[in-house]
Design a protein around this nucleic acid. Structure first.
Lengths: 217, 217
DNA sequence: ACGAAAGTGTTAAAGCGTTCACAATCTCGT
DNA sequence: ACGAGATTGTGAACGCTTTAACACTTTCGT
């Protein structure tokens, strides 16, 4: 099954969760069918791109009709492995970490934050968003079955914790610290740098024509 | 001056804030020179890409030597308009919003969050991270001189507030809600969807070979 | 039952971004 | 003052992504 999946372009793969959520919305609104044009307006992705994306999975739609919402939904559920849950740990229960814990990921997602870690004693033993908080010193004791970590710690602590996560066998890290962490090539790291995002937006505003539009990602 | 700037690829523009921060770090460490190779290891961007990026601004380095940190720094300061501050409003003082307010943006940036808005009465009048909180009903009264908005509200409120921001003359929106907002083409919107980022990371882990590495953005 | 309208799936082209590879240039120790 | 070593800036190749465009299929109102 991976042979087929491996052929899907990365750009497409990044849009799948987005498609899935909107199709989910349509379904709960009771909508039965949808065209690439309609979907395009909702998710702000060119309709040709949507058709192309879908076509990597075969012929999901019908010419002259569009896509059956129910069918699309069940297809995406399978494809995104919605049934098989990925266990996630969150490191650093500050404001950003708390935001994540309170976000109801299970609603549409195949991921669950099983455990959170913090360095402050007064936090230990509490639950936030239903997730128990453990002490960062005990990281290694609670990492069984965890394959992904969300890193929302001060940037000075990032590399040290990353090293421990790698040691504990992590597969992927979502890094919200400004620090660019170094890990073995077998570990996938995605950086999301809030300050950079804001600064980049400002740069675009100042230097790019203000009347033709592309979109974020 | 825009004629020159408009030629810079978007991918490059997105990396500029990142470069700027690391050059800043080097400078405060007292480093006098840096090569594209060194910088590459720090920011996790291919050294050829860095040289290419820099070359869009002319010849910033010296062959056989590298780049003078001080010169690079002053150049980037100019280029990123570090001197001219952009005023930002933050809408929605939840956990995520609070994280932003406590982030010291002025440290390295040309942006300042001047005002925050929330719908909960008990929040009004407080300050978070030095930023005063106003009631969302009074949005229009406090938007003078604000050109960018950070949207950290519940997604159900996103479009309504976006409409009001547009009415108030906003230029750019950093949208953290899962909702894809609709705005005139003269307004730039960047979406950052935390759930999608996490889900995309998981998807990559499951479906892409685990031993060759690219990087986030 | 037919024909116009709708809308997919895909081929082909254009656009963008990254990376290779190396000539040109500068540095620096001796 | 020289030559080995370092490192840039960039032409060219490559690969990925988007977009245009349209043949083909299905729908649906009359």
């Amino acid at each position: 099954m991976d042979i087929e999946n491996a052929k899907i372009p990365q750009a497409t793969a990044k849009r799948l969760p987005l498609y899935y959520r909107f199709i989910n919305n349509l379904h709960s609104q009771g909508k039965m069918r949808v065209s690439s044009k309609e979907l395009s307006e909702a998710v702000k992705v060119d309709s040709a791109t949507i058709r192309r994306d879908f076509s990597y999975f075969g012929a999901l739609g019908k010419k002259g009709y569009g896509y059956n919402v129910e069918y699309l939904l069940s297809f995406f559920r399978k494809t995104l492995d919605q049934d098989e849950t990925t266990s996630v740990a969150l490191i650093g229960v500050g404001n950003l970490g708390t935001a994540f814990l309170n976000y109801n990921f299970m609603k549409n997602n195949n991921t669950k934050i099983e455990v959170a870690f913090d360095a402050r004693d007064e936090r230990i033993g509490q639950k936030v968003g239903g997730v128990p908080i453990k002490h960062i010193d005990d990281l290694e004791k609670h990492m069984e079955g965890i394959s992904v970590a969300i890193l929302t710690v001060p940037s000075s602590a990032a590399q040290g914790i990353a090293d421990r996560l790698v040691e504990a066998g992590i597969s992927g890290v979502l890094n919200f610290t400004p620090a660019r962490i170094t890990v073995p090539s077998s570990v996938r790291v995605h950086h999301i740098d809030l300050a950079v995002e804001l600064q980049a937006l400002v740069y675009f505003l100042k230097h790019y024509p203000l009347d033709e539009e592309e979109d974020s990602q």
